[in-house]
Nucleic acid binder design. Sequence first.
DNA 1: GTCTATACACCGATAGAC
DNA 2: GTCTATCGGTGTATAGAC
Lengths: 245, 245
Amino acid sequence: MSKQVSTLKEVALPAVTTSARMAGEERRLQILRVAMRLFAHSGFRGTTTKKIAQAAGVSEAMVFRHFATKDELYDAILDQKACDGGMGDPRVFLDDAIKRRDDRAVFETLALRMMLHHEQDTEFLRLLTHSALEGHQFSEMFWERVVTDLYEFLGGYVRERQRDGAFRNIDPVVIVRAFAGMVIHHSLNNTLWDKKRRLLDITDEQAARAFTGILLSGISEKAEARATRGRRAHQSTRRVSSRNK
Amino acid sequence: MSKQVSTLKEVALPAVTTSARMAGEERRLQILRVAMRLFAHSGFRGTTTKKIAQAAGVSEAMVFRHFATKDELYDAILDQKACDGGMGDPRVFLDDAIKRRDDRAVFETLALRMMLHHEQDTEFLRLLTHSALEGHQFSEMFWERVVTDLYEFLGGYVRERQRDGAFRNIDPVVIVRAFAGMVIHHSLNNTLWDKKRRLLDITDEQAARAFTGILLSGISEKAEARATRGRRAHQSTRRVSSRNK
DNA sequence: GTCTATACACCGATAGAC
DNA sequence: GTCTATCGGTGTATAGAC
């Protein structure tokens, strides 16, 4: 079989016209894209192969020629999201800011990258949430691979900064959870509600800056305290719930 | 047979106590309760009337005697959640703390009430999320009635405290969003993942305290607002970057 | 009231014509 | 390759026996 072709790299390219005649691979990608949209909207069970075929402008049998089963189609979509659907590796695009110990850049860049990703690929959060609610493999895989990794990575940075005396001694996992909560909850709101119904309609840049500002002020050892030599010794009664690693 | 939904986990839920003989109203409530659990777990389309009947220990026809259609059953469940499924009125249980201008009590109490509600009624968040994803009335109603109200109420309090000079001049809606994000995202994580898979396994009390601490330190004008509440003697009117709205 | 049996529509998937 | 036709299975809802 020589059906194998480059399976992706065309993701950020929504402008694909539906011509009457399409090469096999092109048709496959088109079905994939259409199905992605429908699955994101209605979930796995809420999307019928008939709807997919109609939306793609082909017969239902055509769908099953490219994908043996509905499950296979769904998995193909989620696989793609899992692979290239991400926002990139934080260890890479945060590398510079981390080396400089630029806390603001670290968190703001990360927040912005996440939110831009969620906004550009609006299907992602919907697919992930659907899959999490249904207990699908994808959400578990995403959790174990991406989320856990992010918690370890960002938590490690927080721990370092705590040793530097820059951050207060709050459980790093709590800090990451708080940060992720602000960002993801905001993205989820923007995904689930259209613009007219949004209670908070600001740009991703503004949101990233605001959330980062709140978080950093919230976890930083106060500059004033240090400037005024106010760091009294008895203040070291910080509570840290040491987590087993 | 090899018919298996490979990608979706079919989880057997524990049975609800069923007595052989039940009065009509009691039986209705029991069906309602059982269906609630199943809908919360698998969503509307993922829950069949057959499963509901089996889980309730009655025949399928029995279900349709009490509820004319599956939709009617679903609506009855969501109606119930919308009415008594809440956590109470924040304007009531926060009244005391607000009058005392006890910021910590305000946010921590609210956070705890929300998280306890989400933990006690684990079906609520799942039902709400399912309904939001599929664009059901319920989520919109909940949004307009509960969420909007909370944003106005809590945002109003933040605005007051900003006039008092206690909080920095950040858009109140952003602050509420940040707070809600931390709390709800944490609850959602606890709802979607079982205990073994949780990256952050702390009590609701600890979480409420931690999130409140981060938020208050993050938005407070004073550096050590978190340490002691009584010491608000000399409050300097320090200028902060004002955000345009 | 409660059950068994079943009607009827729809869905996923296949066969075979062109 | 793409379509039409169709099959087995499942899901909602109903009819009618007890």
